[in-house]
Design a protein around this nucleic acid. Structure first.
Lengths: 250, 250
DNA sequence: CGCGCTGTTGAAACTTGTCAAAGTTTGTGG
DNA sequence: CCACAAACTTTGACAAGTTTCAACAGCGCG
């Protein structure tokens, strides 16, 4: 526990042992589908909980990789930076979602993970995860699925960035958020954005002004109500239509 | 082996057992780093070789997932299609690279894999892979790294699509190809593209006309020699500079 | 309570896309 | 083996979408 040389803005480590078996997230998180017995074994795997304050890094690009993190509470973004300062946000993560998969390949993190609000994660030392997944088939399978789904999600983002127009991108983004909030028991149509217009823009391959204009336009068109970060979706069907522009024939 | 109901354009299955231990690709492919003994065990894991002719699908989006494929020879693209016909190419795969990771999550393939030239793959039934990777730690670790690297690669493509200008994208694409050809013992500066301008454009989020104009411009600027699909890189430093436009300070 | 970060809006500029036409290569069938 | 058709590529002129630059408004943190 006397781990860190307490680097500048580094985050706090908590000594609290986390128990997946008690966690209300276990239906969204890694242990999906484990039997009660297996779940209790998995409790050993999770090392500790860690709090990350808004604006702080959970890990930096270039840093050594040791653990996968599961978001317990809060909200993160991951991004990659180009030499000249350009930023690409590669994802936004909320409760139950995993962070750090990018580090396995090179044993070095390839992106930054930054808390967008005060957050808490479970750290799962990767060697533990590999060890347990050799013994618990369900866990192995589930972990592989999680990684694969991350790949599929990334392909979806490529589709968005490569082929969609600005308004389609923002609609897709809002619908995706809506759906993920719903899965966590929150309102599908009324939520607070945790990220700035610039971060949304970076994720969607747009400039912040474009995002802002689009929000205004969607509001004018009666699709949304926008008050800063407070979004209400007023016409979800309309939003969906924006994404799938009427195809003539088919 | 009496597998397929011989669907229309479906590909041929070969009864040949593949042996990783004899394969000259094993330094690029899944079995990297295995001991000779382990390698021989892994031979059992690989089910069979399959030929895929140019233009044919290795698998379709929506099809049930059973196996991961390793490219032995040839060249593939993977793509996802939107309802209205828009296509996003998500990757180009060459010898030693893996196809099918997208299918693990939902047990259904989420993209199409199409041969761009007559090709041959090794099919590795996924249940075998999971079984063997429970026993052979090196294999488990390597497989996890391969998946993670795919995620990192995807993030690189997001960066490209989200933040780079057309000329930077094409430069990055050519340098990436060059580097992968080099890793396979081919010339870094003289190669044949297997894909059309439209496919390059789809991968890079550009229209085929833009790609064509860019090739012409790069040629005018003395960076490349372009004769249809035959590319010679004449000024690799110049290409790299295009990607990292001179930063003022730093 | 004010300074700074975040967001909004406008006008002009620029990059890339669209449409169109013609040239080139490749593949196929006679 | 030639000829024709289809697919792919190149190039131009113009249009459109998005960015850039700039000014200002609002909220929130210290």
């Amino acid at each position: 526990m006397s781990l860190l040389h307490s680097v500048r803005t580094e985050t706090n480590l908590s000594v609290l042992k986390t128990a997946c078996s008690n966690c209300n997230l276990n239906e969204l998180c890694l242990p999906i589908g484990l039997s009660e017995e297996e779940m209790i074994r998995v409790d050993e795997m999770v090392a500790l909980r860690r709090k990350v304050r808004r604006g702080e890094h959970l890990y930096h690009a270039g840093q050594e990789f040791h653990a996968i993190y599961a978001v317990r509470t809060g909200f993160f973004k991951t991004d990659v930076l180009m030499g000249d300062g350009r930023e690409q946000v590669t994802g936004f993560q909320m409760a139950g979602e995993l962070l750090g998969l990018d580090g396995i390949g090179a044993e070095i993190h390839s992106c930054n993970a930054i808390a967008l609000e005060d957050s808490e994660v479970c750290a799962i030392p990767f060697s533990n995860l590999e060890e347990f997944s050799r013994e618990i088939v369900t866990l192995q399978q589930h972990f592989h699925k999680v990684m694969s789904r991350e790949i599929v999600r990334d392909h979806g983002v490529m589709l968005l960035l490569g082929t969609m127009r600005a308004e389609e991108r923002l609609a897709a983004f809002l619908l995706n958020l809506s759906q993920r909030f719903t899965a966590r028991g929150y309102s599908p149509a009324d939520f607070y954005l945790r990220m700035t217009r610039e971060e949304i823009g970076s994720y969607l391959g747009l400039k912040l002004e474009t995002v802002s204009r689009l929000f205004s336009r969607f509001q004018d068109e009666g699709l949304l109500s926008v008050q800063q970060k407070h979004i209400r979706i007023l016409n979800i069907v309309g939003l969906k239509k924006l994404m799938n522009p009427a195809r003539s024939g088919a």
